[in-house]
Design a protein around this nucleic acid. Structure first.
Lengths: 64, 64
DNA sequence: GGTGAATAATAATTCAAC
DNA sequence: GTTGAATTATTATTCACC
């Protein structure tokens, strides 16, 4: 179910420093919401989630 | 030169709806600042530039 | 309209060189 | 420290299907 998954995605990126969609997939799976990379990519686009470069280190997904 | 290129990158993303790093490379080249994709990727990270999903349509690079 | 599987497109990193 | 060339990793899209 889309809305439930997207809700959880927002929770997860708020809670953890998620660096890739693969990592997000793992978290979702742990929450009992298995999904595919393509789906998560679409969700990210729909939710307006961005991948922000952190100073010097890595990238994290977050809301603007 | 790095600082000049990064300055121009900020100008370009403010002025145009740039959707990919390739597109940014073309713009830079037109401005007399030829560069490589790897370099632009590093600049984007350093400058904290993000790729924002626009509602329904494409993605654009911009400052947070 | 929503999804999975596969693919294409895009972007980040590595490595060598300067 | 900076860059180009190449590679790898990551992400967006396409296509078939439901």
């Amino acid at each position: 179910m889309k809305s439930k998954r997207q809700e959880k995605i927002l929770e997860l990126i708020a809670q953890y420093a998620i660096e890739t969609q693969e990592e997000l997939l793992e978290r979702l799976s742990e929450c009992g919401i298995p999904s595919m990379q393509a789906t998560v990519s679409r969700d990210i686009k729909e939710l307006g989630i961005i991948k922000t470069p952190l100073k010097g280190s890595a990238y994290v997904y977050e809301l603007p």
